[in-house]
């Protein structure tokens, strides 16, 4: 949790908002590792930690315009992650108090993912088939926008629009 990390996260997110996809992937990977460390340690019963990680990533994605590029980025990430933890428990009919101080400490240690079915996966399955094809071509099969456009016989713009709509629907659906 150093100043260098803050600077690097801010740089990556700034580049991402300008359209740099590599920077965005790097930013999201760092955020995922940070949030995973917190979720593993704090959450035991009924909520899958990786669900929290994915819901936080989706929330950061759909709300990335709420970051002011001159504001510190970590408090922004923490506040969103904390909201998603509380929200996850609320939706499962429970209440949890999350102390943001503890959060900042435990976020220090990144952790790796463990595999299991996800709420996001279920939300993906509910998408209209066109959007689902585009999202899973890029996400699951790891194709680029251009490759997906060729494979599905769509324009790149249409692929981008379908991806954007599909992700927005997943963000709503996993809520």
């Amino acid at each position: 949790m150093t100043e260098a990390e803050e600077t690097e996260l801010a740089r990556l997110l700034r580049a991402a908002l300008g359209g740099d996809e590599k920077a965005y992937a790097a930013f999201l990977s760092r955020v995922a590792a940070l949030v995973r460390g917190f979720a593993r340690r704090r959450i035991e019963h009924g909520v899958e930690p990786e669900d929290i990680v994915q819901e936080t990533l989706l929330a950061i994605h759909t709300k990335r315009h709420t970051w002011r590029s001159d504001a510190p980025v970590r408090p922004w990430i923490f506040a969103i992650a904390r909201y998603k933890v509380i929200d996850a428990f609320r939706r499962r009919g429970r209440h949890i108090e999350v102390d943001i101080e503890n959060f900042a400490d435990t976020l220090a240690e990144p952790e790796r993912e463990s595999a299991s079915p996800r709420e996001v996966e279920r939300a993906l399955e509910r998408l209209p088939s066109g959007q689902r094809q585009v999202v899973s071509s890029i996400s699951v099969e790891g194709r680029s926008i251009a490759e997906t456009a060729r494979a599905l016989g769509m324009s790149e713009t249409a692929v981008r629009v379908a991806l954007h709509r599909g992700l927005a629907a997943i963000a709503r659906g996993s809520n």
Binding site: A16, L17, E21, L58, V120, E121, L124, S144, L163, H164
Partner: peptide, 22 residues
């Protein structure tokens, strides 16, 4: 969907759309 896949999907949609919040 694992988290790596989700990140790939989100990264493809990087560019910010719509008016600024302010």
């Amino acid at each position: 969907m694992d988290t790596e896949s989700l990140i790939r999907g989100l990264a493809g949609d990087a560019k910010q759309a719509g008016p600024r919040l302010s």
